[in-house]
Design a protein around this nucleic acid. Structure first.
Lengths: 146, 146
DNA sequence: CTAGGTGCAAAAGGTTTGCGGTTAA
DNA sequence: TTAACCGCAAACCTTTTGCACCTAG
């Protein structure tokens, strides 16, 4: 295997903490995810990974992505019922999806007050996590309308 | 066909406005959805509809649900990548999903300020709609923990 | 060395579609 | 009457799984 990068060391540490192995496929998939943070689907990650490891299989990409999620190094992003996307941004955040170009942007959520605070809940409910996805026109596509 | 109810008239009006036909299957599916507002999946709607029209098919239920959505009488609810659920609540609202019992509750969103206002967007973006799903413990399951 | 990971192919599960027969308007 | 709709079955697409071989530790 080639020299380990800082990214590799981060991943290797996280993955061994989970009692898992640091394989070249996992390294590749993680690198693909960090390299271009555009919320790719598993199929897109597969396409990019295959250009580096031509023998890699789609099932392995799914497995590696699941491993990344398990290790806490990535999160799944669900937009309607479209194919699952993957996001290496570990901070609490939501997503903005452009209805024209389809691009996905990370958006900030209010830091104080906890998840979902702007919403009125049934009494005595406890919120664990919040999934927020906004649909609309991104700056680029908005500009194109003028 | 049996006597038309108020619900039927509402649906018939909406459906003819869309240039579509008021069939017994569509009537049945809409009625099932309004009858128990528990965010059923297409399969569950199929099960309930079949108890009234035994010959109805799953594909027809999917088609009827799609028609309802097109006519603006129901909305799809996406929770992660679970099967799509259907909701006849037309007001702007989000969903709270209990991690224990799986029940889905409608939750209010802030009325003033528009969709997604608590979130910091990329500049010059326009929000069209907001999907908000909170995960946590519902009052009933929360109480069971004590 | 060996438990865990990979590649392949097949299966699973939700949803959509094509087609011949049926029906609301 | 006839275009739209229904039921059925097959197709579709994403994701998961079983299995024989391989490899990191």
């Amino acid at each position: 295997m080639a020299t380990k990068t800082d990214t590799d060391l981060l991943y290797e540490k996280a993955i061994s903490r989970c009692g898992l192995r640091f394989t070249s496929q996992r390294r590749c998939v993680f690198d693909v995810l960090l390299n271009k943070r555009d919320h790719p689907t598993a199929t897109e990650v597969f396409r990019r990974a295959k250009s580096r490891i031509s023998s890699i299989s789609l099932a392995t990409v799914y497995n590696c992505l699941e491993t990344l999620v398990e290790c806490g190094l990535a999160r799944q992003v669900h937009i309607d019922r479209e194919p699952t996307r993957y996001c290496p941004n570990l901070l609490e955040h939501g997503h903005f999806v452009c209805s024209v170009c389809g691009e996905v942007w990370d958006i900030e959520v209010p830091s104080g007050g906890g998840a979902g605070m702007p919403y009125r809940l049934p009494e005595d409910a406890t919120v664990i996590s919040a999934d927020v996805t906004l649909h609309g026109l991104c700056p680029r596509c908005n500009a194109g309308k003028n």
